[in-house]
């Protein structure tokens, strides 16, 4: 293996300072993805800055927002009573991801930062524009069963693998980032990027920044929300497609609705047009079908993932139906 330096720090400020010192350094928290990438030769940081001891593990209600520290583990969030009570969609999505062992060490910030699971990205003998810009995309014309149908580019059709991020997008979460000078906030839906001409960039985190916390407004979707993950086996498999669905229904009308898909794009894919269609309408299967159809307007498949053109709208209908049926 290639040697690297290991550093440990206990404050966000010093972590950011260490990051600034060396361009080829990386934060490590749970390491559930980074270590794999290092073993496969996809990345070779010279310094690993261990941030596990930085006190960013809080999960609390502040005003009308749930605050989750970037270093809270996936399990801690999914099992937290506040999250289960106020944001069950997030708990469901987290529990659909990875395995219990991985969730125990994986952090919220690390989950956001995980790289695609595209096989061409991990095999350094294969072309991949995300790993090595300009080398080509192996998945286009290759094995693309797991790949994107929305917002693709001719450079990259990889998908973001997270379940948690799909729910956070649906929940209008806000990401708080910090650099040496201070903090800034961006909407979660704007944190990840589409591949475009720069597939090497997964997100809009700047080189001098650290993820500090999430702020999630509480909502009225608690009763009628559902995270549906369709996958090849019942656990420890990435989504073929997933849907985070939340409904607020009053007087038989949909007053608020959130719909986001996973496994279909380079980032969690918010279905804004479908949401707009459903607002104010009755929660009927017919309307769900219309919303699903609208969601597919700009979908494009690449051969082995043609099935997603059917599985995706079907899953939207199923997720909405299950969300609605929850008593």
């Amino acid at each position: 293996m290639i040697n690297f330096q290991y550093l440990r720090t206990t404050t966000a400020k010093s972590a950011i300072a260490l990051l600034l010192k060396d361009k080829n350094s990386k934060f490590i928290a749970g390491g559930t993805n980074l270590i794999d990438l290092m073993k496969r030769g996809v990345t070779a940081p010279e310094k690993l800055i261990d941030i596990n001891h930085v006190p960013l593990k809080q999960i609390e209600l502040v005003g009308d927002k749930v605050i989750i520290g970037a270093l809270a583990s996936n399990t801690a969030v999914a099992e937290n009573s506040l999250i289960k009570e106020k944001l069950p969609l997030l708990a469901m999505a987290l529990n659909a991801g990875a395995s219990a062992q991985l969730r125990n060490v994986a952090t919220v910030g690390g989950n956001m930062m995980q790289r695609t699971r595209c096989g061409y990205f991990y095999d350094i003998e294969m072309p991949c524009n995300k790993r090595q810009p300009g080398s080509g995309c192996g998945a286009i014309g290759g094995f693309n069963r797991m790949h994107a149908i929305f917002g693709t580019s001719d450079k990259c059709i990889a998908v973001h693998p997270s379940d948690m991020c799909v729910a956070l997008t649906a929940l209008d979460a806000v990401v708080v980032l910090a650099n040496a000078k201070g903090e800034r906030k961006i909407l979660f839906k704007d944190f990840h990027r589409l591949a475009g001409d720069t597939p090497q960039l997964d997100n809009n985190l700047k080189a001098d920044e650290m993820i500090i916390r999430l702020e999630i407004p509480i909502n009225n979707l608690v009763k009628n929300s559902h995270y549906l993950k369709v996958r090849d086996r019942a656990s420890y498999a990435f989504a073929l497609v997933s849907v985070a669905a939340g409904l607020e229904i009053s007087n038989n009308k949909i007053t608020d609705v959130r719909l986001t898909m996973g496994g279909v794009a380079h980032k969690p894919w918010r279905l804004t047009a479908s949401e707009n269609f459903l607002k104010g309408k009755e929660a009927t299967v017919e309307n769900f079908e219309q919303a699903a159809k609208l969601a597919m307007t700009d979908a494009k498949s690449f051969g082995e993932n043609d099935f997603k053109l059917q599985m995706a709208p079907n899953s939207i209908i199923e997720a909405l139906t299950v969300a609605k049926s929850k008593a």
Partner: peptide, 20 residues
């Protein structure tokens, strides 16, 4: 096209898990 395996790991080669 390359003659290389693409799912040669336990995350992508799916043996059943307990939940299956």
């Amino acid at each position: 096209r390359y003659g290389r395996y693409i799912n040669n790991n336990f995350a992508d080669y799916h043996v059943p898990v307990n939940a299956d």
